[in-house]
Measured scan of single mutants.
Amino acid sequence: MTYKLISNGKTLKGETTTEAVDAATAEKVFKQYANDNGVDGEWTYDDATKTFTVTE
């Protein structure tokens, strides 16, 4: 399945996607992506749209 990340960081804003077997796997990928880009904030997940959002 395709999962989307919306980043509302102070230094990184935008969207990216990943293919993953489940939401937990996608979350690990996205949290590593955010960490690699210096984004640390509040996370939410919408199962209906398969979208994670991180806001700093």
Rank of each mutant, 00 (worst) to 15 (best):
M1A: 13
M1W: 14
M1Q: 14
T2H: 07
T2S: 07
Y3M: 02
Y3T: 02
Y3D: 03
K4H: 13
L5H: 01
L5R: 00
I6Q: 06
S7I: 15
S7Q: 08
N8V: 13
N8H: 12
G9C: 14
G9I: 14
L12R: 04
L12W: 15
K13N: 10
K13W: 11
K13E: 08
G14K: 12
G14W: 15
G14C: 14
E15L: 13
E15V: 14
E15Q: 09
E15N: 07
T16F: 15
T16A: 10
T16M: 15
T17E: 09
T17L: 10
T17M: 10
T17S: 10
T18I: 15
E19V: 15
E19L: 14
E19T: 14
E19P: 05
A20V: 04
V21A: 12
D22E: 04
D22I: 02
A24Y: 10
T25E: 14
T25M: 11
T25C: 07
E27F: 15
K28T: 08
K28H: 08
F30T: 00
K31W: 06
Q32L: 09
Q32C: 06
Q32E: 10
Y33E: 02
A34S: 04
N35V: 13
N35E: 14
N35I: 15
N35D: 11
D36Y: 07
N37Q: 11
N37E: 06
N37R: 13
G38M: 06
V39R: 02
V39H: 04
V39C: 08
V39G: 03
D40C: 12
D40T: 14
D40P: 03
D40M: 14
D40W: 15
G41P: 03
G41E: 02
G41N: 02
E42F: 13
E42Y: 13
E42M: 11
W43T: 00
W43K: 00
W43E: 00
T44L: 08
T44N: 08
D46L: 03
D47R: 06
A48N: 11
A48D: 12
A48F: 10
T49P: 00
T49N: 08
K50P: 01
K50V: 02
T51Y: 02
F52S: 00
F52C: 00
T53C: 09
V54P: 01
T55L: 08
E56D: 09
E56T: 09
